[in-house]
């Protein structure tokens, strides 16, 4: 036990810069994937609700893409996109879109019909009904989907290092190949902490936007 602790300390003493680089790579991959998937998820979610005839196949497509294991998506994307940050972001985005998409659809459909009709009856244009009533009321559920996606992204970004995207996964895979437990611990715990911090931040955001419910 003592030995592991010592080697963890010495790792940080000797590799501070490398660790910080990998950490920032991990954060940067995660944030890029998150913004991409929020954009795609919300866009298709709105399309699903606005044109409900197409809802089934849009959701179906993304669900099927999610069934493919993330590792397979990553490896497959090498074939088409090569290695590095770009393919990793693309592959992870496929995994992160479904929870955001599903929650966007659920959130938008949960807004009561009478609420939309009152907004319309008061003289809002269709666009105003969406921007001032429907989207704001769906937002808490959309944010819940973003939270789910965030946890998945931070965890999956670990294996992105396999295709040369960098990130904390490098420490873990190095630990596996040279059989050094302390590297596994450093990598694993860092990813877990990152995940917790991101959930905490999104929770704060959630509380801010839902303050009207808690009074």
């Amino acid at each position: 036990m003592r030995e592991i602790w010592d080697s963890i300390i010495s790792y940080f003493e000797n590799n501070t810069d490398a660790y910080l680089t990998m950490l920032s790579q991990h954060v940067s991959i995660s944030l890029r994937v998150l913004s991409m998937s929020i954009f795609i998820g919300c866009f298709f979610g709105i399309l699903c609700v606005r044109f409900s005839r197409h809802q089934k196949w849009i959701i179906g497509t993304f669900q099927v893409l999610r069934i493919v294991p993330s590792l397979a998506v990553l490896v497959l994307s090498i074939r088409f996109l090569g290695i590095g940050m770009g393919p990793a972001i693309t592959a992870l985005t496929f995994l992160a879109v479904p929870p955001i998409l599903m929650n966007t659809v659920a959130g938008l459909e949960k807004v009561p019909v009478f609420m939309l009709e009152t907004a319309k009856g008061m003289g809002m244009t269709p666009l105003q009904v969406w921007l001032r009533v429907r989207l704001p009321l769906a937002f808490p559920l959309i944010l819940a989907g973003i939270k789910t996606a965030m946890v998945e992204i931070v965890a999956s970004a670990t294996i992105a290092s396999l295709i040369g995207a960098g990130g904390l996964g490098q420490i873990i895979f190095q630990g596996i190949s040279v059989r050094r437990t302390e590297l596994l611990l450093i990598g694993g715990i860092s990813v877990a902490l990152l995940s917790l911090i991101s959930v905490f931040l999104l929770d704060l955001l959630d509380r801010f936007f839902q303050r009207y419910k808690r009074i």
């Binding site: 609420m115 009321l137 009207y212």
Partner: peptide
């Protein structure tokens, strides 16, 4: 209307 429909986020 009966359900009032006040916007809860405002």
């Amino acid at each position: 209307i009966q359900q009032v429909g006040l916007f809860p986020h405002m």
